[in-house]
Simulated scan of single mutants.
Amino acid sequence: MKEIGTVRTLRGNNAEVEIKRNSACGDCGACHVSKDQSVMLTTAKNPVNAKSGETVEVEMQFANVFVAAFIMYGIPLIAFILGSSVAYYLVGSLNLRWDQVLTSFFTGISLTVIAYLLIRQVDRQGRFSSKYQPVIVAIVEKKETIPTPMEKRMGN
């Protein structure tokens, strides 16, 4: 998955890159950019030593996009389903006088929150950031671009 962006700031071996949302972008939400926003900021590895203000080509391995999406959405979903199912079964089989449906729902929600907190903690430790981080692969010449309909509407 390749995108063209502009380097905004440098941070050691990384660069903060502003990428304009293109017309092929859907509404998957992977980039956390709403329909009303025309740009997103990302931190990318900078092995080509791009300077601030340069236009660059940023790449993220397609397989890594799916793995990152699974980490952020799949693991919490599995935690919710597993928590709800186990709680539903346990409340029913142990003859507890708790509401079986509500207990299983809140257990599932609780495990989903715990899964997100664990993912956040692991990410802060740096286990995800380097492997799933985009990489600047080339510095490109800035060309005259034709604004997309969204950019025209946004006044960019």
Rank of each mutant, 00 (worst) to 15 (best):
1 M>D: 04
13 N>K: 11
140 V>W: 06
88 Y>I: 11
99 D>V: 06
134 P>Q: 05
134 P>H: 05
11 R>G: 07
62 F>I: 11
78 I>G: 02
140 V>E: 11
80 F>H: 03
19 I>M: 03
63 A>F: 14
99 D>I: 11
94 L>R: 12
43 T>C: 02
19 I>L: 01
155 G>L: 00
50 A>N: 01
126 G>H: 09
150 M>F: 11
128 F>C: 04
146 I>E: 15
95 N>W: 13
140 V>Q: 08
81 I>N: 00
126 G>N: 05
98 W>Q: 04
46 N>E: 04
53 G>R: 09
141 E>L: 10
66 F>G: 10
48 V>K: 07
125 Q>L: 15
23 S>F: 05
8 R>T: 06
148 T>M: 05
88 Y>N: 13
73 Y>H: 06
41 L>I: 08
59 E>A: 07
1 M>F: 06
114 I>S: 00
28 C>G: 08
130 S>V: 04
107 T>R: 13
50 A>L: 07
146 I>S: 10
55 T>M: 09
61 Q>I: 13
137 V>G: 04
75 I>K: 04
12 G>F: 03
114 I>E: 03
109 I>N: 01
65 V>H: 07
99 D>W: 00
1 M>S: 10
145 T>A: 14
71 I>H: 13
152 K>F: 00
154 M>S: 06
118 L>C: 09
73 Y>S: 11
93 S>R: 10
144 E>F: 09
122 V>W: 09
22 N>Y: 11
36 D>F: 01
58 V>T: 04
57 E>H: 03
133 Q>V: 06
104 S>C: 03
120 R>G: 08
11 R>S: 15
28 C>K: 09
94 L>P: 00
13 N>Q: 10
145 T>E: 15
50 A>Y: 03
10 L>W: 10
151 E>R: 03
150 M>V: 12
19 I>N: 02
116 Y>G: 04
95 N>Q: 13
135 V>Q: 01
63 A>P: 10
93 S>G: 11
92 G>V: 02
51 K>C: 01
19 I>S: 02
97 R>N: 14
104 S>G: 02
146 I>H: 08
2 K>L: 14
47 P>I: 04
93 S>D: 13
101 V>Q: 07
91 V>T: 13
138 A>T: 11
18 E>H: 00
112 T>H: 03
50 A>H: 02
55 T>P: 06
95 N>G: 11
117 L>V: 12
149 P>A: 05
106 F>H: 07
124 R>M: 09
